[in-house]
Amino acid sequence: MESVNTNQKSYTSLIWILSIAIPVVVAILIFTPEKIQGAGDWVYMLPHLNATFNTLTTIVLLLGLYFIKQKNIRAHKSMMSIAFTLGSLFLVSYVIYHSTADSTVYGDVNGNGVLEEAEKTGKLMFWRGFYVVILLSHILLAAIVVPFVLFAFYYALTDKIEKHKKIVKWTFPIWLYVSITGVIVYGMVSQYYLN
């Protein structure tokens, strides 16, 4: 029994460490002015790949919901495992991109990385405001959902189904929102990608 409690505490500690480390590392990579050099032009394909990961995650999450409503636990587990894998691949791709390339600025028509006065037109600023609200909610909830997703998987894998059910009531809608808004953000900013 003591071994089980020790393992549970170890996994719980690991989940909290990852839940703090992931957003911190991502923030450092995004806000560090110096990017890692020498990665090559292939990194400019990563935002498109990330949008694909988010689209597939949305579809798979909805399939996971459908299967659990049908009481098809095996298919549900498969879909949620695929969603978790897609999310992990997204995270790796996202970190590689933001550690090697500057972020694209919404409304930066001339592609110089700065929103200049001439680019701050009325209609464009309205859509930029909408974009920023969606982007900020996406980023904030993406950071918040990490421990919930990890605990949901931990509870499912350790057959703590009641705890799993309680946590996914909050986790699922947040995760779905993050994946959908990831696609929306990409769709809005992709017209400003240079490569």
Rank of each mutant, 00 (worst) to 15 (best):
I82K: 04
I28N: 02
L91D: 00
F84G: 11
A83G: 12
I36S: 04
S93F: 11
L63D: 05
I30Y: 08
A51F: 00
Y97I: 03
T52W: 05
G64V: 00
T100N: 11
N50A: 05
T32R: 14
L89E: 05
S93C: 10
S78L: 13
S99H: 07
S81F: 10
E34A: 14
V92M: 13
V60T: 14
S88F: 15
T104R: 01
S88T: 15
G40F: 06
V60M: 12
S78Q: 14
K35G: 03
L46R: 04
I96R: 01
F31T: 08
W42Q: 04
Y44K: 11
T58G: 01
H98T: 06
T104K: 05
K77H: 13
I68G: 01
I73N: 11
S99L: 11
L29Q: 09
L56E: 04
L65F: 15
I73Q: 10
V25S: 06
K69D: 10
G87K: 01
V25N: 05
A51S: 15
H98Q: 04
T55F: 12
I59Y: 11
P33D: 02
N50K: 08
L63F: 15
Q70I: 09
F90A: 03
A83M: 07
G64F: 06
L62I: 14
T104L: 02
T85Q: 00
S103H: 09
N50L: 06
L63E: 08
L61C: 14
I96V: 15
T100D: 00
H48W: 08
I28Y: 13
T52Y: 05
H98K: 04
L46Q: 03
T85W: 07
